[in-house]
Computed example of a mutant assay.
Amino acid sequence: MFKAELSDSSILKTSFDAISSIVDEVQIQTDSEGMRLDALDRSHITFVHLELKSSLFDEYICDVPEKINIDTDEFMRVLKRAKSQDRVLMSVDEGNFIITFEGDATRTFKIRLIDIEYDNPTPPQINHPTSFKVRFSILKDSINDIEIFSDKIALEVDEDYFIASADGEFGDASIKYLHGENIKEHEKALFSLDKIREMLKADKFSEEAEISLGTDMPLSLTLTMVTGDGKLSFLLAPRLETDE
């Protein structure tokens, strides 16, 4: 039996707003410790990991581990119907992922489970030379500034600053943030602006992001809830200068 009840629908909304932009289908795995998923987009550019511990939920029961295979777009369409004050109840019956919103009215949706041959992907083990934290709002502002001139974004860190920049055909942009971390290296890598924008749709998950960066290495972006009950992380492959 699996049953989970959550008083704050925004946690699921913000998570799957990002996830559904990256992958079409996922397998949500549940056990006594909570819910989690690992997924890789079709182009093998972005890896995503979500972990929601049982302690996050108002009520959580999982006697037997479940594998819930769903279409992420369908799940997100249902989640968008949740009102801010609604409680979210999740359960599974034979062939359906059942989502119920309890508020002024009780509304129940059944999402058909899909058949997918699924082996959970695992991210490569990468030892980034630098890690630091930055406010999520700064990342979102940087994306909006950079997209004026380019569809690529260079992320750079040195002893003093975290820098987002772009060199476009019609202009350049640069955003510098004094990180205040103990960093001795100078690292820089280039990424797809659209891919980072997909990740940043999870803006309500955490007010702060941890970035791990290395020269021409994948970008690691991790969001952790203040309570420690949830984590959403992404690993994004870099764009090389030879990429078109």
Rank of each mutant, 00 (worst) to 15 (best):
D58N: 14
D58E: 14
E59F: 12
E59D: 15
Y60W: 00
I61Q: 04
D63A: 14
D63C: 08
P65G: 12
E66V: 13
E66I: 10
N69R: 14
I70N: 03
D71H: 09
D71A: 10
D71K: 12
T72I: 03
D73V: 11
M76H: 07
M76L: 15
R77N: 13
V78H: 02
V78N: 06
V78A: 02
L79I: 07
K80G: 07
K80L: 08
R81Y: 07
A82W: 00
A82S: 12
K83R: 12
S84F: 08
Q85D: 15
R87Q: 13
V88T: 05
L89C: 10
M90P: 00
M90W: 06
M90G: 08
S91G: 11
S91E: 10
V92C: 02
V92Q: 09
D93E: 12
E94V: 12
E94I: 09
E94Q: 15
E94F: 09
G95T: 13
G95M: 13
N96R: 08
N96H: 15
I98R: 11
I99T: 13
I99W: 02
I99A: 01
I99G: 00
F101P: 02
F101D: 03
G103S: 10
D104Q: 10
D104H: 08
D104C: 06
A105Y: 12
T106W: 09
R107K: 14
R107D: 14
F109N: 08
K110G: 00
I111S: 02
R112W: 03
L113C: 07
I114C: 03
I114S: 08
D115F: 09
D115W: 11
I116Y: 01
I116E: 04
E117S: 06
E117F: 03
P123Q: 14
Q125T: 11
Q125N: 14
I126T: 07
I126V: 14
P129F: 09
T130G: 00
T130D: 04
S131Y: 06
S131M: 05
S131F: 12
S131P: 01
F132Y: 13
F132D: 05
K133T: 13
V134E: 03
